[in-house]
Design a binder for these strands. Sequence first.
DNA 1: ATCACATGTAATAATTATATTACATGTGAT
DNA 2: ATCACATGTAATATAATTATTACATGTGAT
Lengths: 120, 120
Amino acid sequence: MSNYKSPENVDGYLKVYSGLAHPMRIKIIGVLWEGRRHVSELAKMLEISRPLLYMHLKKLEEAEMVSSSYEISESGKSMRYYKVNDFIILITPPMLADLAKAIPLPLKAKENSTNNSTDG
Amino acid sequence: MSNYKSPENVDGYLKVYSGLAHPMRIKIIGVLWEGRRHVSELAKMLEISRPLLYMHLKKLEEAEMVSSSYEISESGKSMRYYKVNDFIILITPPMLADLAKAIPLPLKAKENSTNNSTDG
DNA sequence: ATCACATGTAATAATTATATTACATGTGAT
DNA sequence: ATCACATGTAATATAATTATTACATGTGAT
């Protein structure tokens, strides 16, 4: 049984879709799926720099596909561990059509993700 | 019953995910879901220029989420009609983990979508 | 011939996303 | 103090995406 919650607004869905739009981020999920890792460890496994990895992790975290927690290792160092969240994403044309209703035209002004309520 | 076929390789999945990573493209699917439209018509409805619309449509078509066909109107003009394809996209961590296996490290050389064999 | 409307694309500009480099901090061990 | 290893981020460079402008073509009607 899953306790996955769908994004609440268009911006949330866009973060999920964009989150998956880079091969390295899919790779990150693949690696983390085999077990949680701390940042430096992950950077070595993926053969990329930490700053770049942070950028990718930030996007995945904002899309709520991964999450992190701090932990003190035996040797006393603070480490940030990442893990893959439980999620199920289902996309069909009618679902996108429904989502599209919340996208205004023209598309200039970027919507504010914190203010998305329907009342005034 | 659906006759939807999943992408065959990583590049195909990336095209689908990237295809959904822009609000205008979700909007396009929303509009086309209500009925097929020809390009000029669609551009007016979406309040964007045709060249820009072509760019978005190209991405959606490459992701196989929409498709087009030419038709001669009553007045004799050739029009390109677009419609939404039937598709179902399901994404879960283990599915992404499986997909990730096909992503090589380091991530420099861009994979050729036509040459995806495993031997050397 | 000119207009209204359809097709398409090449060239460029503007904006975002991706990637790199350099720096700063903290811990425990030597 | 210096090393090895962990954290984080600011500043910058590079690459890719998105957006605009300009051009070219074709049809039927006036």
